[in-house]
Amino acid sequence: MNRFSFTRANSVPEAVRAGGGADTRFLAGGTNLIDLMKENVERPSALVDINRVGLAGIEERPGGGLRLGALVSNADTAYDRRVAERYPLLACAILAGASPQLRNAATNGGNLNQRTRCYYFYDTATPCNKRNPGTGCGAIGGVNRIHAILGASPSCIATNPSDMCVALAALNATVRVTGPDGEREIAFADYHRLPGDAPQHDNTLRTGELVTAIDLPDEDFSAHHTYLKLRDRLSYAFALVSVAVALRMEGDRIAEARIALGGVAHKPWRVPAAEQALAGQPASAENFDRAAELLLRGAQGQGHNDFKIGLARRAIRRALRQAAAGTPQSQTDKRIA
């Protein structure tokens, strides 16, 4: 780990004032940042510890919905009674990720800003456009079993590793940020970005901006949801493919559908056409097939990850069936119903 200066901020304005440098990093739970510093992928000259700035609560929003403070731990968010009852999709997705130790330390803001687990990004001996722009991509033509099948570019085929963010995408969350130029809100779909020719930017945060909260809209998908995560071992592994589904049912028909995919792209993957195709339709196998087809339109394997396309198709169908039936995937009993 390189040497760096350390500042403890005691308020959000203090953090913003201290955090403006291009190679300054905010330290929250540290579960990703400290790891990246040990690997010399991150070499900040200064850390600003934001663990004592507040932002550590979950509150009712005035107009309905919940506001999740950026410094609330992933565990406290998943087990919050209001989150578990009103946004069980989010609770399930959080509990599908990492381990209890990591969820105790990791924060909501940090979850949004975690970096890819692409092995080439982590290996400073190899080229990586995300780590060192312009050096190339080791994963294209390399070992790419865990990599993207959707939205990739000739510069980067990395995936976003978060489970929580897949649920937040499906739930139409809003990210609240503050920075040198004041506060702003970013729709979740606009928070993470596709790699294009600038894969060094995972998201649309500007230099010096700090995530302060995640807002959940006042919408109820608690009766018909699921988070189905497929991975190489049953716990404590990143998703090869994951599917978050939230449905609003009217009798046997789907009134509204939200579907987001994890493990397949540089950001949680949503396709409005796939969701619209289900609206007003019966929850049938044919309609689920059609939605899967629309979600995976343009999917392209890189060799080792070709299997993800078929796996994703089957996972989407299965997740839609689970959500429609009101039988969400258990995050403890890993048998897939």
């Binding site: 330290l27 400290i34 209890p100 990591l102 330390a105």
Partner: peptide, 19 residues
């Protein structure tokens, strides 16, 4: 490296002591 920090389990290898 798991230890308890204020009663909660965490990976001590990923926490900076100063924090």
């Amino acid at each position: 490296c798991t230890v308890l920090v204020d009663g909660r389990r965490m990976n001590s290898c990923l926490k900076l002591a100063v924090s």
